[in-house]
Amino acid sequence: KHICAICGDRSSGKHYGVYSCEGCKGFFKRTVRKDLTYTCRDNKDCLIDKRQRNRCQYCRYQKCLAMGMKREAVQEE
């Protein structure tokens, strides 16, 4: 069993190059498709875990990228 590289929830498989849960997969897809931009209200180092993953979209998206999620993979779907 794999866990989500972004928030630690149960992974549903590899999405956009990274083991991730449905929540983070959908979040990344929406962000890329709609070309959304986020801002962090703190120091750009918010904790992203299962409980708090919805608290800061900026940091969640940065963690998706840092863990290796690929924007191109969304476009190719």
Rank of each mutant, 00 (worst) to 15 (best):
Q57V: 08
G13P: 04
H15A: 04
Y16A: 12
A66P: 01
R33H: 10
C59Q: 01
R30V: 02
Y38I: 08
S12N: 15
K29N: 13
G8T: 12
D9K: 13
S12W: 06
V32M: 09
D45T: 07
R30F: 02
D9T: 05
K14P: 11
V32S: 06
Y58K: 13
C4D: 01
R41E: 15
R33Q: 08
F28C: 01
D35V: 15
R51Q: 10
D49C: 04
H15L: 04
C7D: 02
Q57M: 02
Y19W: 06
R33K: 14
K50Q: 14
D9C: 00
H2Y: 10
C7E: 01
R33N: 10
R71F: 12
R53G: 10
A66F: 12
R53T: 15
K50A: 14
V74E: 09
Y16E: 15
K29T: 13
Y16F: 15
M67H: 09
C46R: 02
A73E: 10
E76G: 14
Y38Q: 08
S20C: 14
T39H: 15
S12P: 15
Y38T: 14
A73G: 10
K44V: 08
G17A: 05
Q75L: 09
E22S: 06
N43M: 13
K29C: 03
R30P: 01
L65V: 13
H15F: 06
I3V: 02
E72W: 14
I48R: 09
I3E: 02
K1R: 03
Q57A: 11
G8P: 03
E72Q: 08
I48Q: 15
E76T: 07
V74Q: 10
T39W: 10
S12E: 15
L36S: 10
C59E: 01
S11N: 06
G17N: 15
R41A: 14
Y38N: 05
E76F: 11
T31H: 04
H15P: 08
S12D: 11
A5D: 12
V18T: 02
K70C: 06
C46I: 02
C7T: 00
C7N: 01
L47D: 06
C40A: 01
T39V: 14
Q75R: 11
C24S: 00
G26I: 04
D49F: 05
K44R: 09
Y38A: 07
C7Q: 00
K63N: 02
E76M: 08
Q57E: 08
G26Y: 06
G23Q: 04
Y58W: 13
Q75D: 13
G68V: 01
E22R: 11
L36D: 14
N54K: 02
Q75K: 07
R10V: 03
C24F: 00
S12Q: 15
K50D: 13
M69C: 05
V32C: 02
F28Q: 01
C59D: 01
V18P: 03
L47Y: 09
R71P: 11
C4S: 00
S11E: 06
A5R: 14
K14N: 09
G17F: 05
V74C: 12
D49V: 13
R30K: 15
G68T: 02
R10E: 07
K14D: 12
F28Y: 04
V74F: 12
V18I: 04
S20K: 02
T31Y: 05
E76R: 08
C7F: 00
Y16H: 09
G17D: 13
N43T: 14
G8L: 03
N43A: 12
H15I: 03
C21F: 00
H2N: 11
Q75G: 10
R30I: 02
I48K: 15
I3S: 04
Y16L: 08
C40R: 01
C46G: 03
I6Y: 00
R71Q: 11
R33W: 11
S20E: 03
R33S: 06
G13V: 06
K50Y: 05
C21Y: 01
E22F: 05
E77I: 14
N43D: 03
E72L: 07
T31K: 03
D42H: 01
R71M: 10
Q75T: 10
R33A: 14
M69I: 03
R53W: 11
K29M: 14
S12H: 04
T37F: 08
G23F: 02
K1L: 02
E72Y: 02
H15D: 06
I48T: 11
D45P: 06
A73Y: 07
D45Q: 12
A66D: 13
R30A: 04
Y61H: 06
G23C: 03
H15V: 05
C40W: 01
M67P: 01
V32F: 11
Y58L: 09
V18M: 04
M69S: 03
R33V: 12
M69W: 10
H2T: 09
I48L: 12
G68C: 04
R51N: 06
D9I: 02
D49W: 15
C59G: 01
E72A: 09
R30S: 04
I3L: 12
E22L: 03
Q75E: 15
C21K: 00
G68K: 06
C46D: 08
I3G: 03
Y19C: 04
E22D: 07
Y16P: 06
D49H: 10
A5P: 06
C59H: 06
R51S: 12
G13I: 02
E77R: 11
D45F: 05
E76V: 11
R10G: 06
G13T: 11
R10N: 09
C59F: 00
R53K: 12
G13R: 09
G68I: 01
T37Y: 06
V32T: 13
G17T: 13
E72K: 01
R71G: 11
M67I: 12
K70G: 14
T31D: 01
R71A: 13
Q75A: 07
Y16R: 07
H15M: 03
I3W: 02
R10W: 08
V74I: 10
C56R: 10
N43G: 14
R30N: 05
T39A: 10
R53V: 12
E22N: 06
I48M: 13
D49Y: 03
C24M: 00
C46F: 02
Y58G: 09
S11C: 10
E22K: 12
S11V: 03
G8Y: 08
Y19A: 08
C24K: 00
I6A: 04
M67E: 10
D45W: 09
C46N: 03
I3Q: 03
C21G: 00
G8E: 11
A66G: 12
C21R: 01
C24Y: 00
K14A: 09
T39S: 13
G68S: 05
T37W: 07
T39R: 12
H2P: 02
I6V: 09
C21L: 00
G26T: 06
R51G: 12
E22I: 10
L47T: 12
C4G: 00
I6C: 12
K14T: 08
L47I: 11
C7Y: 00
C21D: 02
Y38R: 05
R41L: 05
V74G: 09
K14Q: 11
D49K: 13
L47H: 10
C21P: 00
